Simulated assay, not measured.
Amino acid sequence: MSTPLEIDPSATAQPEAVLAGPGRIEGRSLGQIAWGRLKRDKVALAGGLFVVLLVLCAVLAPLIVGVLGHPPDEFHQELVDADLQTPIGPFGGASWDFLFGVEPINGRDIFSRVLYGSQISLLIAFLATVLSVVIGTTLGVVAGFFGGVVDSLISRAMDIFLAFPLLVFALALVGVIPDEAFGLSGDSLRIAVIVFIIGFFNWPYIGRIVRGQTLSLREREFVDAARSLGARNGYILRKELLPNLVAPILVYSTLLIPSNVLFEAALSYLGVGVQPPRATWGGMLSDAAKWYQTDPWFMLPPGLAIFVTVLAFNLFGDGLRDALDPRSR
């Protein structure tokens, strides 16, 4: 007959010790869970790091150019062949002093102009995205929450804006901008007009997404609970719906920025964006198109800048979408 198992009462853990012990399981917020998923996506993380690096380069362009380059509008005609009007040497005359070479005819530093061009592209893309997000989120939430006639009017307005020939309108409007208006002039006026055109006419895209999410959220239990406690519509919109719309708004914003970068580059390429001598990626591509047979290198730096920027934003946006909504995979 076996001996009964004896348990030492002092070895048993008290409930208070279990609750306060090191093995306690701590909850994680939705933000911490999303960050954990995003860290596991190395491609998206690399895209996000490149986006941060690009923004820093744009902000610190004067300092970087002062160390590694030359003023973007400074001519170096001694580096250009007098007969062919092309840079002397391979790869556009690239060297330690001119990392990306120089432009034909005038010999301006391509590296410096690419850095300064990033300021224009990112500034317009970010401001236009903010304008689109503010308008689209506001109207999308109102349409989805109130429904009825309000929803019908806003939805028909979305259809009209989506059918609008945006590029043609931008070419027509930007091409007839006066020298001074609304207290602005020169490049500041053109940047403001381009931001308005891109941002104001692109809001229906995010507006439709927000409206659809709002239609789903307004039927959820927490909204009914807020109504039963006497909450007004304004409180429900601010405290219950908008916090739950942050994820889709954030994801779509990261995917809208590269589209705006491409749109600004297209306007500059067509000659109706920010005017020379101000450096822009689209303007540099337009100048390079005239020399692609004799100096094809000139087209490579601004083209790669646009390509890598758009790719980085898209990769980061896709990874952010998967991190915030794993069911979308």
Results as ranks from 00 to 15, higher is better:
residue 251 V to Q: 02
residue 190 R to L: 13
residue 179 D to T: 14
residue 259 S to W: 09
residue 201 F to L: 15
residue 260 N to L: 11
residue 186 G to F: 10
residue 195 V to N: 09
residue 298 F to C: 13
residue 274 V to G: 08
residue 281 W to N: 08
residue 172 A to Y: 01
residue 192 A to Q: 12
residue 165 P to D: 07
residue 168 V to W: 00
residue 182 F to E: 06
residue 255 L to K: 05
residue 299 M to V: 09
residue 196 F to M: 09
residue 198 I to G: 02
residue 258 P to S: 06
residue 268 S to H: 08
residue 208 R to L: 15
residue 302 P to M: 12
residue 204 P to H: 11
residue 189 L to W: 04
residue 277 P to Q: 12
residue 221 E to N: 07
residue 246 V to L: 15
residue 181 A to Y: 08
residue 291 W to C: 06
residue 252 Y to D: 13
residue 273 G to F: 07
residue 178 P to M: 06
residue 165 P to F: 02
residue 291 W to E: 14
residue 187 D to S: 11
residue 291 W to F: 15
residue 276 P to N: 11
residue 212 G to Q: 12
residue 233 N to Q: 15
residue 165 P to H: 07
residue 289 A to T: 08
residue 231 A to M: 11
residue 288 A to Q: 03
residue 274 V to S: 07
residue 250 L to N: 03
residue 193 V to M: 15
residue 227 R to S: 08
residue 278 R to M: 13
residue 267 L to A: 04
residue 197 I to W: 00
residue 244 N to P: 11
residue 280 T to Y: 09
residue 253 S to Q: 01
residue 187 D to C: 01
residue 194 I to K: 08
residue 211 R to V: 11
residue 295 D to H: 14
residue 266 A to T: 13
residue 167 L to M: 10
residue 273 G to W: 10
residue 189 L to I: 00
residue 238 R to E: 04
residue 180 E to V: 07
residue 293 Q to E: 12
residue 275 Q to A: 03
residue 291 W to V: 12
residue 256 L to I: 10
residue 241 L to E: 04
residue 301 P to M: 06
residue 246 V to M: 15
residue 268 S to E: 06
residue 273 G to I: 04
residue 234 G to F: 02
residue 171 L to I: 14
residue 167 L to Y: 07
residue 175 G to Q: 03
residue 267 L to D: 01
residue 249 I to Q: 02
residue 289 A to R: 10
residue 300 L to C: 00
residue 205 Y to A: 14
residue 192 A to P: 09
residue 192 A to I: 13
residue 277 P to F: 14
residue 297 W to Q: 07
residue 232 R to A: 15
residue 187 D to R: 04
residue 253 S to E: 04
residue 197 I to Y: 00
residue 300 L to V: 08
residue 287 D to Y: 10
residue 261 V to I: 04
residue 233 N to I: 12
residue 249 I to V: 15
residue 231 A to Q: 12
residue 187 D to V: 08
residue 268 S to F: 05
residue 177 I to G: 03
residue 204 P to K: 13
residue 219 E to W: 01
residue 237 L to R: 04
residue 232 R to C: 09
residue 223 V to L: 10
residue 299 M to K: 02
residue 225 A to E: 06
residue 192 A to R: 09
residue 208 R to S: 13
